[in-house]
């Protein structure tokens, strides 16, 4: 029995990957990567969800039964990393546009 959010994860990852593979505009490639990242983050966060569970704060937990905070920590780190990576790639695109006057990934000089 596959849950609905796992289906969404797969849809997002496949959509993002297809954008990376088929889109020629470099900015759209970066957007595709962000869609994959969204899918993966959704996957991680849905992994940590437990129905009726309590946030992992000692003083708030009634009988010391709490959610394991690992997936949330993973997701936060992944989001931060993804942000830096996106910024770096977009700055590469700016510099590439200055040199090549194009955003087309087919316009390349390194080949063969």
């Amino acid at each position: 029995m596959i849950s609905l959010h796992f289906l969404f994860v797969i849809v997002l990852v496949v959509l993002g990957l297809s954008a990376v593979v088929f889109k020629r505009n470099m900015i759209k490639i970066v957007m595709g990567l962000n869609v994959i990242a969204g899918g993966v983050n959704l996957f991680l966060i849905s992994m940590g969800y437990r129905q009726g569970a309590v946030a992992p704060i000692f003083t708030n937990a009634p009988d010391l039964l709490m959610v394991l905070p690992t997936p949330q920590a993973l997701t936060l780190t992944a989001i931060v990393i993804n942000l830096t990576v996106t910024a770096l790639m977009l700055s590469f695109i700016i510099m590439l546009y200055k040199h090549y006057r194009s955003l087309d990934s087919f316009k390349r000089r390194l080949l063969g």
């Binding site: 990852v13 990957l17 990376v20 470099m26 490639i29 970066v30 990567l33 994959i36 990242a37 993966v40 996957f43 991680l44 992994m47 690992t70 997936p71 993973l74 992944a78 990393i81 993804n82 990576v85 770096l88 790639m89 590469f92 695109i93 510099m95 590439l96 040199h99 090549y100 390349r108 000089r109 390194l110």
Partner: peptide
């Protein structure tokens, strides 16, 4: 140079893809 930005961009795109799928795999194991 233009070429070095091109090389860096290509490396970055594929390594981000690889990194995200690595994270996906790690999530499945978790």
């Amino acid at each position: 140079s233009g070429e070095s930005f091109e090389a860096a961009f290509k490396y970055m795109v594929i390594s981000v893809t690889a990194g995200l799928f690595l994270l996906f795999g790690v999530g499945i194991l978790y």
